[in-house]
């Protein structure tokens, strides 16, 4: 598997969350995602970008295109240097909210992508990495 150039976007305002949605949409279109697949990954990115802004105090997104023999995917890495998450399992559970959504942000985003990883600890910031593939490319 080879990786293409990385695009980095700042996440410091809700206007930039909109910019994240637009950039992820463009990356998904370029990788050959269907409309439903685009909508899923853009929705996941919107949730994760908001977490970066609201809980991480802002941060950035790196978008990487992944090439496999059977197709292209995209990897999204959201990084912040915020307070970190002490209890990841609770943060991922449905209904957990700090008041800015319906408590489905992190867990909901995880259900919309094929791969989901979170690296966090109190005082160390949070990095969430997700990978999405169009149908047929996953596992190829």
């Amino acid at each position: 598997m080879t990786t293409a150039a990385v695009t980095t976007l700042p996440i410091t305002s809700d206007l930039e969350i909109a910019g994240v949605r637009q950039a992820v949409r463009e990356a998904a279109v370029a990788a050959g995602f269907s409309l439903v697949e685009q909508t899923k990954v853009v929705t996941a990115a919107s949730e994760l970008a908001r977490n970066t802004l609201v809980h991480g105090g802002g941060g950035r997104l790196e978008i990487t295109r992944l090439d496999r023999p059977h197709g292209q995917g995209i990897r999204l890495r959201f990084r912040d240097e915020g307070p970190g998450i002490a209890d990841v399992e609770t943060a991922l559970s449905d209904g957990y909210t700090t008041g800015h959504g319906l408590g489905l942000g992190l867990g909901g985003a995880r259900r919309l992508v094929q791969e989901f990883a979170i690296d966090t600890a109190p005082g160390r910031g949070t990095t969430v990495t997700v990978t999405a593939w169009p149908r047929g490319a996953w596992g190829g």
Binding site: R21, R25, T39, V42, T43, S46, E47, R50, H100, G101, L102, G103, L104, G105, G108
Partner: peptide, 10 residues
């Protein structure tokens, strides 16, 4: 509207 996420749903 192209996406509805948990914030907009709320």
């Amino acid at each position: 509207v192209e996406i509805v996420d948990s914030f907009l749903a709320r």
